[in-house]
């Protein structure tokens, strides 16, 4: 499976993270998104007329929506990440997969504006981003009352992976994560998963490694 990848794209990171968590190997094809704008060039536009990344190629199959790619990877390698299939849980997975698009439009827009100087109404991006974070916070709080630590169940699903990157990177777009205790605990639970990988802007949990004992001169 080949992923057209940009190292700073949260949507590409969703795919890399999912693959890492379930042990799928991806062939990475780096795309010069910035400064080159390669995703708008002829080769990639032929593959994806929307001009967006990620793009996943697997044989004849070409997928261009990150949520669809997550579902594909999970269905092939780790179906438990799709949820149990019970009506309510299946619906919750879909609810948050759809919601993740709003995170991309709001927090993602703010991040591209503040970091890579892309155009847009930064005030609107940030206000919509805060509204989305509050919904997520409330959703996670209510899940906690039901004894569930993740968005759709007590175990992570594709919905968590779809929402995590843009949320964790909200500060890149000038949106603070300080006011959200439930999001903080959830983000921590995701970062503590076996096989978790980071991306620039999302630091790893150094506390998972014990403090090393170092003698001077050993370094």
């Amino acid at each position: 499976m080949k992923l057209y990848n940009y190292i700073l794209s949260p949507s590409c990171y969703k795919v890399r993270l999912m693959a890492a968590l379930i042990g799928v190997r991806l062939e990475l094809r780096p795309v010069d998104f910035h400064p080159g704008g390669e995703h708008r060039g002829p080769e990639l536009m032929a593959l994806n007329p929307a001009g967006s990344i990620p793009i996943l190629e697997d044989g004849d199959l070409v997928l261009t929506e990150s949520s669809a790619i997550l579902v594909y990877l999970a269905a092939k390698a780790a179906p438990e990440w799709l949820g149990s299939g019970k009506a309510e849980e299946a619906a919750r997975v879909q609810q948050w997969l759809s919601f993740s698009g709003r995170l991309t439009a709001s927090l993602g827009g703010a991040r591209l504006h503040e970091m890579l100087l892309r155009p847009g109404d930064i005030g609107a991006f940030q206000a919509q981003g805060i509204a989305a974070l509050r919904e997520l916070e409330a959703g996670l709080f209510e899940q906690g009352l039901r004894g569930q630590r993740f968005l759709a169940a007590d175990r992570p699903t594709v919905a968590d992976i779809a929402c995590f990157p843009y949320v964790a990177l909200a500060p890149d777009g000038g949106v603070s994560l300080d006011p959200y205790p439930a999001i903080r605990l959830w983000s921590r639970a995701i970062r503590a998963l076996d096989g978790f990988i980071e991306m620039p802007g999302i630091h790893r949990l150094h506390e998972l490694k014990p403090e090393p004992h170092i003698e001077p001169g050993e370094a």
Binding site: D178, H203, L205, H206, E207, P210, E211
Partner: peptide, 14 residues
Amino acid sequence: LSHGFVRGETLSCI
């Protein structure tokens, strides 16, 4: 320091 990490009984700066 709130961006840091806790190991054992100490708080570390990231």
